[in-house]
């Protein structure tokens, strides 16, 4: 174990862990844009620079391993000045449209400019102007807001393994692009949205059906209802409708989702949802009360039980429903109807 000082605080840290990890362990917050614990640290944005006593330059906390006897200042005058200058430089090449930008309220750039009082850029000069890529049906890519932290590229290559996007060109004109800027629809993109989930600013945003502000929403942790991987996700809820889904950094998906998990949640608040029980009368399904529906079913069960026996009834449970519901379904068929004719679609 290594002992070092952070903002005067004695800290114990594992050999090989970084300053950022050591700081987080003792609750010291260091701002980051391009850091992601699942990725190999690449130190692109430089906002996490800290002051190391005796150091030549300002090392980045996300990449620098701890060493015995380090004395670190995370908010010293020089560090704050440098961060303000970096934010100033980013804003010089970033549209200031927080009023209508959908990321407002959850944008790391917005938060850090607020924290470090960076009202506007002091530079004037060339600014990016790329066309917005709307070709993907689920999300759009606005390169003018991109701060080139690179996380979307590294998630797509190191974690998702699809390699749909990459860095193009060099220096100031560098931007994230699909090959030959042919657009996301023509790339190998499988619309998993994992890039959208890691973008710290509004460059990659879902095409939400409903306009909403993040401060109007609450999140509910749940498990995805599609395939058997069981991804952990947060439903983003505004009043009584789910307006978005974010991955959770936990077992088994470690912050990843797929196109269905991330974007196909429209069925929840869909107008065609069944809202009332229906009973067939003269060949047509008409609305009925619950009591009426239950009674019709109960009568049928009892009638068939007496005429043909319980085994003339069969029940199909659902691999889409809760564990508890499957338990009740087989209990209904066995304990109440009295037959073992219960199965479910494990075979599809």
């Amino acid at each position: 174990m290594i002992t070092l000082k952070i903002n005067g605080l004695e800290v114990e840290a594992e050999e090989g862990s970084t300053i950022l990890e050591a700081a987080t362990k003792v609750g010291v917050k260091i701002p980051t844009f391009c850091h992601d614990p699942r990725l190999v640290p690449h130190g692109s944005c430089r906002i996490c620079v800290v002051e190391l006593e005796g150091g030549r330059n300002l090392p980045t906390a996300c990449t620098t391993p701890v060493a015995e006897g380090m004395n670190i200042q995370t908010e010293s005058k020089e560090v704050v000045e440098t961060r303000r200058e970096i934010l100033d430089l980013i804003l010089a090449n970033h549209p200031l449209d927080c009023l209508t930008c959908e990321k407002s309220g959850r944008c790391t750039l917005q938060d850090l400019c607020f924290k470090y009082d960076v009202k506007e850029t002091t530079h004037r000069g060339a600014k990016k102007c790329h066309p917005i890529d709307e070709s993907n049906p689920f999300y759009y890519s606005d390169q003018n807001k991109c701060i080139l932290c690179g996380k979307c590229v590294y998630v797509c290559s190191q974690l998702q393994g699809t390699n749909a996007i990459g860095f193009a060109e060099r220096g100031f004109p560098t931007h994230i692009a699909t090959p030959f800027n042919e657009g996301l629809a023509h790339s190998t993109c499988v619309s998993c949205g994992n890039c959208v989930s890691v973008c710290p600013v509004g460059a990659l945003m879902p095409k939400s059906k409903e306009k909403f502000r993040y401060w109007e929403t609450r999140t509910v942790r749940t498990t995805c209802s599609y395939c058997g991987v069981g991804c952990q996700m947060d439903l983003v809820v505004k009043e009584n409708s789910v307006v978005g889904i974010d991955p959770v950094m936990a077992v088994p998906n470690d912050g990843l989702l797929c196109v269905k998990g991330k974007f196909a949640f429209n069925f929840i608040n869909h107008p065609n949802r069944l809202k009332k029980p229906l009973v067939r009368k003269e060949g047509k399904l008409v609305e009925a009360t619950w009591e009426e529906a239950y009674q019709v079913i109960a009568d049928q069960i009892n009638e068939i039980k007496t005429k043909d026996g319980a085994d003339a009834i069969a029940g199909f449970s659902s691999a889409r429903a809760l564990t508890e519901e499957n338990y009740l379904m087989q209990k209904l068929m066995r304990a109440v109807v009295g037959t073992n004719n219960v199965d479910h679609c494990a075979r599809l």
């Binding site: 390699n163 990459g166 060109e169 692009a177 030959f180 790339s187 190998t188």
Partner: peptide
């Protein structure tokens, strides 16, 4: 080698 990586190298 992924096409996006090649395009990145060629334009670099």
């Amino acid at each position: 080698v992924p096409l996006s990586e090649i395009y990145g190298v060629v334009t670099f």
